[in-house]
Design a protein around this nucleic acid. Sequence first.
RNA 1: CGGGGCGUGGCGCAGCCUGGUAGCGCGCCUGCUUUGGGAGCAGGAAGUCCCCAGUUCAAAUCUGGGCGCCCCGACCA
Length: 506
Amino acid sequence: MAKQVKTAISPTRSEDYPEWYQQIIKASDLAERSTVRGCMVIKPWGYALWENIVQAMDNLFKATGVKNAYFPLFIPLSFLEKEAEHVEGFAKECAVVTHHRLEKGKSGGLEPAGKLAEPLVVRPTSETIIGDSFSRWVSSYRDLPILINQWANVVRWEMRTRIFLRTSEFLWQEGHTAHATAEEALERTSMMLDVYTTCVEDYLAMPVIRGRKSPAERFPGAVDTLAIEAMMQDRKALQSGTSHFLGQNFARGFDIKFQTAAETEEYAWTTSWGSSTRMIGGIIMIHSDDDGLILPPKVASAHVVLLPIIRNPDDRQAVMDYAQKLARELSAKVYHQRNILVEIDDRDIGGARGWDWIKKGIPLRVEIGPRDIAENAVFVGRRDQPPNEKSAVKRDQFVAEVTDILDDIQQNLFQRALAFREAHTIEIEDQKTFYDFFTPQNAEKPEIHGGFAISGWCGSAECESKIKEDLAVTIRCIPFDSEAGKGRCVCCGKKSESQVVFAKAY
RNA sequence: CGGGGCGUGGCGCAGCCUGGUAGCGCGCCUGCUUUGGGAGCAGGAAGUCCCCAGUUCAAAUCUGGGCGCCCCGACCA
């Protein structure tokens, strides 16, 4: 008799949320820490997930006229100096290449040699190097707009790293556009936020709040930053995509000028927008439970695992034939532009096999044994339901309905997350309630507390930073549907400028 | 960069205080028995005890120095 374990993941979410998060990643085999400080190794199960997100998002981008390109990893140091706020925002986290050769040193080890005339920064983001190209691509209003995206890796030398959420190197996409008018650039800024919303809500099943960042939370160098924010199961906010209106700031820094139809010379209006492997962290934290990862079907690394039950060796051939035939039929079906991905796992490791796939978060587990073959059935478990709730389904019915079942799981995950967010979002008017809301009962080992507070804000940076200092709570966004001028500032009590979303954040 | 903690088979840890040449659980391999809710028994493989120096007959253990990592803050997608 095996020892009884209630949950596959230990500790549970309520026991120790940060540790639970690490354990999910380990148990699901998504990724692991690299021996390189702050970096991660994305393993096949995690990379397949990323590829699916990339594909979904890339299609959405291209549907709006964006084209992909690729710019250098290295950025001349001088480029970063061309936009004052930008350099200030990123200077502290830049990795810098200063040499181009290694030589045998005195101690026998290799030492950098061949000092570069100008140091190269490993891109933390590419506004500058892309701005440099844009300046050469644009001369007439007829050259505009330019709609470019690149899928790339970037490096930000963070103090503290957390796998998928904040790593020294991460994968992302960054879109960069240049326009003839401010209106058009603004339109593009909000259009891309719409694309992010679609991708994150429809594909990742993560409900988001859309809004504008406060000046303090703006991207360095941006005139305006729009963002989508989702609530994780520890009730903290995760920013899962940002879209920036850069005004003419970078156009001035990089001399992106064009001649108008009226023969005047003007600076272009630019935008940039990005989303990263951080979204995988969001998927983990918003959907998974104490038995492991739960993947949204539309981007799942695989959809179905077939688990042949072979009680005696004589059955093996029949069971495997049945499984392989089923796999072929399922694989031929299309689910949201992708063929259904089927795994067959015939490892002889007993019940641990089923739990492996539960921990990996695969949407559907299908057990196939002699009994099922006799009844022309399959035994199906859904990852959005408890591990023991499995049921027999006629084989043909399962094949016919599998995409509906996947859609149902997808919807269920979204609704579950939405209900959770709504349950932990409250409107707060007075300061004491606000402070209580964001203060844990046990300061030594804070329990999961707080959530999203919808409160008035007078618009002053002082109130914003006081709340940040007191509670580590920030303005996540000023929602687009915020009621202007309603109520009073939750900090100073003066007349409110807008109702904003306050939360602790990743 | 401040405060704390930790480096011992793949993973998690004990051993250190009081020096005597390394052990436990999980995992892995082999065999037999099992198998539809995380298998049992038997056997087996696997470790420069983070690095360097010192003390000592003898160092995972004591001393000094270094390196790395994790957690909590400030910074951030």
